[in-house]
Design a protein around this nucleic acid. Structure first.
Lengths: 147, 147
DNA sequence: GGTACATCCGTGCATAATGCACGTTACACC
DNA sequence: GGTGTAACGTGCATTATGCACGGATGTACC
C-alpha cells in the first residue's frame, strides 16, 4: 500500500476529531460558552490568522464569501469580532477578535488543554515535539494548493 | 506557550486542508468525478470504517441521523453505496461502498497521490513514516472522547 | 489621467441542507 | 410480556448556502 493511502485516512481522522459535534459541544459546554456552532470556527480561524478580510476567511473555511459576510455580521453584533477599515485597501475591512472574543477563546482553550493533556498523558515530551514539528512542516507545504 | 496551544492550531490547519473547497473540487475534477460535495465525505468515511450503520456514520461526521439517512439514500440511488440488512440487529442496515463506489474512490486516490507526492517530495522517507506513526497514535488516543 | 478589468463586499433570492418531533420496528433486560 | 432504549425514515419549519448583481475601490496599461 502506498504511503499516501496510509496518510490520507489519518488526515481525515484528524479532521473528524476537530469537527466532531461531541467535541465542540463538550468544549463549549465545559467552557460555559453559548455560541452557535457555525460561528465558533470562524472566530477560531480569525484568532489564528489575524487580521484577515472576509474573502480570505471565506477561502479558509471553504464557503462562499456571502455566507461568511453574514456570519461575520452576527459575530460583530455579538461584539466578539471587530471590523476595522483596511487603510491599504479601502474596499476591505480587516477582521479580528474583540477583547470579548479573545476572552471567550481563552476560556475554551483552558477546557481544551485539560482534554488534550489527558489524551497525551502517556506521550514522551520529545514525541509531542516531533509531532508538532512534522505536522507543522506538512502544513507549510500544503498551505498553498496552487501548482 | 503551552504545547496544546501549539498543537491545536495545527490540527485545525489539517482540518482546513482536508476540507478546503479547492482541494476537493480540484481532486474531483482531476479525477473526472461528478459527485455532490456533501456526498463525497460520506463515501470516503464509509470506505474507511466499513461496514457502518447510519447512526454511526452520522456521529462520525457530526450531523443528525436524519440528514445522513437522506444523503445515504442519494448515494444508494447513485449505486455508489449498498445497504444490506444487519443480521445482528434487524433495525439497522449496514452501509458499504459498492463496487462502483470503490472504483470512484480509487480514481480520486490516484489524483490525490500525485498531489501529495508533489508536496512531500523533499521529505525523507523516515520523516513520513514518523509522521504517520505519531498521527496514528494520536488518533488512537483521541478516538473515543468519552471520559 | 483615463480606460478596462479585477477584486472586496453586502444583499436579494431561489434552492438545498439541517435538526427536531414523531412513528415504527427491534433489541435488552428483567 | 412489560418497560426502556436504540436504529431508523419522513414531515415540517427553520436556517444555511451559493449565485447573481451592483457599488466601491484597486490595479495595470497606455
Amino acid at each position: 500500500m502506498h504511503w499516501t493511502d496510509r496518510l490520507h485516512p489519518l488526515l481525515i481522522g484528524v479532521s473528524d476529531v476537530v469537527n466532531r459535534l461531541d467535541v465542540d459541544t463538550r468544549l463549549l459546554a465545559a467552557s460555559d460558552v453559548k455560541l452557535d456552532r457555525a460561528l465558533f470556527p470562524l472566530l477560531s480561524r480569525l484568532a489564528l490568522h489575524e487580521p484577515m478580510n472576509t474573502v480570505e476567511l471565506a477561502n479558509l473555511v471553504g464557503r462562499d464569501h456571502s455566507v461568511v459576510s453574514r456570519q461575520v455580521a452576527k459575530l460583530e453584533a455579538l461584539e466578539l469580532v471587530e471590523r476595522v477599515p483596511d487603510e491599504r485597501d479601502r474596499r476591505a475591512r480587516l477582521l479580528k477578535p474583540s477583547a470579548a472574543g479573545r476572552e471567550l477563546l481563552a476560556r475554551v482553550a483552558v477546557a481544551r488543554r485539560r482534554w488534550m493533556e489527558a489524551d497525551f498523558r502517556a506521550w514522551p515530551d520529545e514525541d509531542i515535539e516531533t509531532l508538532i514539528a512534522l505536522v507543522g512542516r506538512m502544513l507549510d507545504g500544503l498551505g498553498s494548493p496552487d501548482d
